[in-house]
Design a protein around this nucleic acid. Sequence first.
DNA 1: TATTATACATAGAGAGACTAGGTATTATTC
DNA 2: GAATAATACCTAGTCTCTCTATGTATAATA
Lengths: 111, 111
Amino acid sequence: MAQRRGLIKGGFDSLLLCLIAQQPMYGYQIIKELEKRSQGYFRFKEGTLYPALHRSEKAGLIQGKWQTLPSGRQRRYYHITEKGLHSLAAKRSQWLDFLAAMNLIIQPVSD
Amino acid sequence: MAQRRGLIKGGFDSLLLCLIAQQPMYGYQIIKELEKRSQGYFRFKEGTLYPALHRSEKAGLIQGKWQTLPSGRQRRYYHITEKGLHSLAAKRSQWLDFLAAMNLIIQPVSD
DNA sequence: TATTATACATAGAGAGACTAGGTATTATTC
DNA sequence: GAATAATACCTAGTCTCTCTATGTATAATA
C-alpha cells in the first residue's frame, strides 16, 4: 500500500509534473494555468503550490532556474528532469490503476 | 475550494458509502470486499476503516447495528441512511467533476 | 498616490491515512 | 488438549498533505 498512499493525497504533485513536462513554468503561472485549463475547478493557493514545488525540486523531479525579465522582475522557472519524466510516467500509470480500481467499486451503482 | 478538500483525501469515505448502499455490511467484510472487487488493489487497514466508519456514522450517513450470529459472535452491520444516500449522490457527482478536471490537465500529454 | 496584479515565500492548523498495538471468539491443525 | 490462524472489533500516535494566513517586493493601473 506504500506506493499508493501518495496517490490520492499527492495527486497534486502529478498535476505539477504534468504541466511542467509540457513546458517550463513558474509558480504563479502554474496556478493560473491549472485554473484556466480546468475551467476554474482547480484553484490552488500559494501555500499549496510553493511547498509542492520545493518538495519536487528536493526530490530531483524538477529543477528551478531564476530568470530576470527585461523589466527587472525575477521569476523562477521550473523544468522537468530526467528523473521527473520517469516519475511522471510511473505516476500516470498508477493513476490509471487507481481509476480502474475505483471503477470496479463505483460502477455497480447505477444512477 | 472547501468542498473539494475532502475529495481527493476523503475519496475513501465515498467507497464506503458506495459499498454499504448496495447492501448492509460489517467492517471486516468491507475490507475483504474492497480487496476482492478491486482485484487486490485496495487493501485498507483496520486503522483506516474503523475510524472512517465511526466518522460516517457520527455524520449520520450510515448507521450501525449489532447483530449476534448463531455462533454467538458479534458483528456490527452498517446500513446507509437517507442522508447517506443524498451524500453519496453528491459525492459521485463531485468525483465526476474532479475526474473531468483531471482529464483536462492530464490528457494533453500523450504517451 | 492608492490599489491591483504579479511573483516569491513560510508558519501554523486541521484532517485523514497509516503503523502499531490491543482484546476476544471461533475454527483448524498438530 | 494446545497452539495457531482466521475472524471481528477498537484506539493511540505519527506522518504528511492542503489550506489559511501572513509577509515581502515590484510593476501596472486608476
